[in-house]
Amino acid sequence: MKLSAVQKVKEITSRDFLINYMKPCRPLILENFVDKESPAFKKWNYEYFKKTAGKTKVSIYGGELESIDRAASKPIGETTFSEYLDLITSTPTEHRLFLFNLLSIKPEMKDDILYNDVTKGKILKWLPFMFFGGEGSITRNHIDIDMSHVFITQFQGIKRIWLFPWEQSDLMYKLPYNFHSLTNIKNPDYKEYPALRYLNGYEAVIKPGETLYIPSGWWHYIQYETEGYSVSIRALPSSWLEKWRGFKNLVVTRHFDNIMRNIFGDKWFNYKVKKAHRKAQRAIAKIKV
């Protein structure tokens, strides 16, 4: 597996970004995608969040390797948002929040973020998502089901993100009819998963104020180097192929997989594992030709 550093820029024109990064789907770290004068950088902190929504019940998620057969892992517990923030600031923990969006609970907080929009209006400013995690927590290697372009801005802490293009899905042992990888790429077992040796991706380390652009359909494996939180916004897929993939994933693929899993159980999962290995072997053979 080979990882190259993602390029970082302080300033970039919309024309340069759209032509040289968004259209060809190349990742980039933007240092000024969110305006540094945004109220969020002055107002937001854990104490502010506790006062804002500290009593809200949240579901806690842990490691995901044990639920590799599912599109999403199940929560391991429930607590208040305030208690969760106390946890991640007091000790390293793999616990993270999934599908808890403070910005939907307190929509007025969306106005605290001012964007320097290099996409010329493609980003969906009205649909931000917020993510929290403890030091050492991870989000397993996956592609986003809707195939959107994603802009992740770090506000607290440091994240390390590995990125791989859609074209390397077979080398990744992508589970058929799912949107995540069969393997643990952090500690790869090259004997069991030899195709991982041929991966050629990128590594991005983002700090507060920095934004990582993840192109449509790209794999991303997110690691919390420290506790922290980030905000992501999306831009709809650009090409008709990406739009079709996103539509098919949302409307057809995930529902088909759920039906087959309910009917056949482990047999369906084992079939998908075997198919992922076959496709990986074919991908290796193509590289060696």
Rank of each mutant, 00 (worst) to 15 (best):
K174V: 12
P215V: 06
D170Y: 06
I214G: 07
V150C: 05
A204V: 08
Y173C: 03
L212C: 10
L175F: 12
K207G: 01
F155V: 02
L163M: 08
D170S: 03
L212F: 01
E167A: 15
Q154C: 04
L182T: 12
L196H: 06
F164C: 04
Y202K: 07
P208C: 01
N178T: 12
I152Q: 08
I152C: 06
K174I: 06
D144L: 02
D144P: 06
Y213K: 02
D170C: 01
E210T: 00
F179L: 01
H149K: 07
Q156W: 11
R160M: 09
K159H: 05
D146M: 07
W162R: 14
L163F: 00
W162C: 15
D189C: 04
V150S: 08
T183S: 15
P194F: 02
F179H: 11
P215M: 08
S181P: 11
N141R: 02
F151C: 03
K191P: 03
L171K: 00
I143C: 14
I214K: 01
N200T: 12
E203L: 11
I185K: 03
F151H: 01
G201F: 06
K207Q: 11
L163E: 05
M172Q: 03
K191R: 10
E203D: 11
I145V: 12
Y177K: 14
N141F: 09
P215L: 04
I185T: 13
D146K: 06
S216P: 05
V205W: 08
L199T: 12
P188R: 04
P176R: 02
K207V: 14
D146W: 06
F151Q: 03
R160Q: 15
Y193F: 14
A195Q: 04
R197I: 09
G209N: 09
S216V: 05
L182H: 08
I214C: 08
T153E: 01
F179Q: 12
M147C: 13
W166L: 15
L196P: 02
L171S: 00
A195L: 01
Y173G: 05
P208H: 00
K159Q: 10
L196S: 07
I185W: 03
K207C: 10
E203V: 13
F155A: 07
K186W: 08
L196F: 07
S216A: 12
S148L: 08
H149P: 02
K186Q: 13
P165T: 07
K174Q: 14
E192M: 14
R197E: 15
F164Q: 08
R160D: 13
L175Y: 00
T211D: 05
F164G: 07
E203I: 09
H149F: 01
D170I: 01
Y198P: 12
L199S: 08
D144T: 00
F155K: 06
N184C: 03
Q154G: 06
S169D: 13
K174F: 12
P215W: 04
S216G: 09
F179R: 13
G201K: 05
Y173L: 08
Y193Q: 07
V205R: 09
S181F: 03
I143K: 11
G201W: 03
I214N: 00
S216E: 13
A195N: 00
P194T: 07
T183N: 15
I143V: 14
Q154W: 02
Y190W: 13
F179D: 14
R197F: 04
E167V: 10
Y190F: 14
N178Q: 15
Q156K: 15
S181I: 14
A204S: 06
E192C: 13
S169C: 13
R160S: 13
G217Y: 05
K174E: 13
H142R: 04
Q168E: 07
R197L: 14
M172H: 05
